[in-house]
C-alpha cells in the first residue's frame, strides 16, 4: 500500500497535528488500512451499495412553517457573538 499523506488528510479535515501525532497516526492508519483491505477479497460485482439498512427513502414533510428561531437561546453557547452574529477573526481586510 502507498504511504498515506497524513498532512494532506489533516488539511482536508481541518486538523492541526504535531510531527509526533503525524507519525503515530500514520502508523495507525497504515495498520487500519491493511485491515480494511480484507474487503478487496470479496466479489461485489453487481451488488447495489446499501446506504440505509432498511432501504428507506427520504421522507418529505409538508412545506409548512413548523419551527421558530430561538437565536438568543442558541447563541448562549457560542464562544463569541455580537448583535445576533457569530464573531470570527477578520476574513476580508
Amino acid at each position: 500500500m502507498a504511504d498515506i499523506d497524513i498532512q494532506h488528510l489533516a488539511n482536508l479535515a481541518q486538523l492541526e497535528l504535531s510531527q509526533q501525532e503525524i507519525s503515530v497516526v500514520g502508523e495507525d492508519l497504515q495498520r487500519i488500512m491493511i485491515m480494511v483491505d480484507q474487503m478487496q477479497a470479496i466479489d461485489t460485482g453487481n451488488v447495489e451499495p446499501l446506504a440505509h439498512p432498511l432501504d428507506a427513502r427520504q421522507r418529505l414533510r409538508p412545506d409548512q412553517i413548523t419551527e421558530t428561531i430561538e437565536r438568543d437561546l442558541y447563541q448562549q453557547g457560542a464562544p463569541a457573538t455580537a448583535d445576533g452574529l457569530y464573531l470570527v477573526p477578520r476574513v476580508v481586510e
Binding site: I4, M33, P49
Partner: peptide, 26 residues
C-alpha cells in the same frame, strides 16, 4: 476522522466507501 477523510478522498471513494457499502448489502 482521518480514516473517514481518507476513505472519502478523491481516488479512494470507490475502493473504500463504495466497496464498504456493497459489502454492507451482502
Amino acid at each position: 476522522i482521518l480514516t473517514g477523510t481518507y476513505a472519502l478522498s478523491v481516488g479512494y471513494y470507490d475502493a473504500y466507501y463504495l466497496k464498504a457499502q456493497k459489502i454492507r448489502r451482502l
